[in-house]
Each structure stands twice: as structure tokens, then as C-alpha cells.
């Protein structure tokens, strides 16, 4: 396990969102964090990507405290794509992807053959070679999201954290992005951690799931272990039937109704 969280408390200001959480990410797998809005999954992902400093506890990357490592060194091992990033007007796909090489550059060496090759590989992997010279704002939502993932790929990191990479995309583009994630694992051997909202797509495209509620992990394991009727009830207050996906045999959630909870038992302080 190259990426671990040890007893992390996370929050903004005096608002505590995650109160003491332990987590390990299996290398070479796709791990997806699921849970209701505001459960702390994006906060956890930001902490794993050292964008948010834990109030206590620590995040370990290759056994070292990630917040004590030079940020540039982390950036060569771990890539993070935040939710709904925005680019300046007129930026081309090639320019955006080239900016992923940032951690590998210095003021005396702005561009190398290695950078060129990494950018071209990233564009090819995401199928954007033909669109490389197009401005980002002329692309469709799905193409734009692929361009951002391409930038994170050009960074050349073994680990990749994606915060809701399918938000605002239609179903076909969602599947397009998730197939790309699977290929990153299979062909490039990358470890991917992402946050998704669609449970069925999460079950289908992930090796491991982490289900969260109110800042704690309710269940973690394979989709078969996590995507069960009792877990869905506990995490989403959702009454559902889980059946095998007729195509992939992964769990398929058929929602029935929201179960009203008599009292809130576990609100974070």
C-alpha cells in the first residue's frame, strides 16, 4: 500500500468533517469512494492528495508524511484532479496537457524530449491527438474532461486521484471516462482513487469501494462486499434491492424508497 491515511481528522476552520479515519489504498487498483452529499468523501480525497492538511493524524505516501515532503516531489508520484476545474480562455488541449509536466520542469529547463513524449502519450491514451490544437472551450464536456485527465496523465504519476470525474457528463461520456480509468489501471498500471455518485457505475468500474457516512467509513472492500442492502440502508437511508448486473455480474442497485430515520444518531460535531 503506497497511500495511507492514519487516524486523520479533517475539517475547515472549526468545522470537523472527518473525525479519526484510517484507510489504505491497494496499489494497482481502482478504488471508489461513495456516500451521500456532505459525507466527507471529497474532503478525504483532498487530504489524500495533500490539498488539505489534516487537523491531526497523517497521510503517508510510500511510508513518508505527505505534508512534510516537498510538494514538487509528491507531484511526481501522485496526481490530483479536483472537481470541475476551469481553464483560462483560449488555452489549447496541447497547452493544458503540457502544463501537467510542470513538476518535471525547472526555470533552466522548460521543455525536454521527455516532456514531449509524455504529452503525446497522454493525448493518445485519451484519444485527443487530433484535437490537440483546439481551444478547450470549443470542446464538448466529455472531451474537456478527457483533456483534464490527460493533463493529470502527462504528469506521469503512479497514483491518480479524481474527484467526481463524471460530474456534468451525460451517460455515454461518463462511461467513456470510466473505461479510460480502467485502461489506466490495465495498460499503464496506475492506481486510481476517485469519488463517484453513480453507484452502479462505481460497482462496475471499481476493484474496491469505500462507503462513507458522516465522516466515517461504513464499509470497505470489493463491490460485492460493500454494495449490499444493509450498507445502502446505513449509508444512504435507502431501501433498495441489489441484484447481479446482467452484463458484468457486479452488484446492481435497484432503489425502492428512502427510509425515514426517526432520530439522527451520528452527526459530526
Amino acid at each position: 500500500m503506497r497511500l495511507q491515511a492514519v487516524d486523520v481528522k479533517l475539517g475547515y476552520g472549526d468545522r470537523l468533517i472527518v473525525d479519526g479515519l484510517d484507510l489504505g489504498i491497494e496499489t494497482g487498483t481502482v478504488t471508489t469512494i461513495i456516500g451521500p452529499n456532505g459525507c466527507g468523501k471529497s474532503t478525504l480525497l483532498r487530504a489524500l492528495g495533500r490539498l488539505l492538511k489534516p487537523l491531526s493524524g497523517h497521510v503517508l505516501l510510500d511510508g513518508r508524511h505527505i505534508h512534510r515532503m516537498p510538494s514538487r516531489e509528491v507531484a511526481k508520484i501522485l496526481g490530483v484532479l479536483p472537481q470541475a476545474p476551469a481553464a483560462p480562455e483560449g488555452l489549447t488541449v496541447a497547452d493544458l496537457v503540457a502544463r501537467g509536466r510542470h513538476p518535471h520542469q525547472a526555470w533552466y529547463r522548460q521543455w525536454s524530449a521527455g516532456d514531449e513524449a509524455a504529452v503525446e502519450d497522454a493525448l493518445r491514451m485519451t484519444g485527443l491527438l487530433d484535437l490537440a490544437e483546439r481551444p478547450l472551450d470549443e470542446l464538448s464536456g466529455g472531451q474537456r474532461q478527457r483533456a483534464w485527465i490527460s493533463m493529470a496523465l502527462a504528469q506521469g504519476t503512479d497514483l491518480l486521484l479524481l474527484d467526481e470525474p463524471t460530474t456534468f457528463l451525460d451517460l455515454a461520456h461518463q462511461i467513456d471516462v470510466l473505461q479510460l480509468v480502467s485502461r489506466l489501471r490495465d495498460e499503464a498500471g496506475r492506481t486510481v482513487v476517485m469519488v463517484l455518485h453513480d453507484l452502479n457505475l462505481a460497482a462496475r468500474h471499481s476493484d474496491r469501494l469505500i462507503a462513507m457516512r458522516d465522516g466515517r467509513v461504513v464499509a470497505a472492500g470489493t463491490p460485492h462486499e460493500v454494495m449490499t442492502e444493509p450498507v445502502l440502508d446505513e449509508v444512504f437511508d435507502l431501501e433498495a434491492k441489489v441484484i447481479p448486473d446482467p452484463v458484468t455480474a457486479t452488484p446492481l442497485v435497484v432503489p425502492i424508497a428512502i427510509r425515514p430515520r426517526p432520530t439522527e444518531t451520528s452527526t459530526p460535531r
Binding site: S71, V74, A75, V80, L81, P82, L91, L96, A152, Q155
Partner: peptide
């Protein structure tokens, strides 16, 4: 220009 989170992810202080 890509946002503070992306800049930090790219190793910028």
C-alpha cells in the same frame, strides 16, 4: 491559471 487546487497538485507553493 488552472486554479489553486490544480496548481498545488502540480507541486506549486
Amino acid at each position: 491559471a488552472l486554479g489553486e487546487d490544480v496548481a498545488r497538485a502540480l507541486g506549486r507553493n
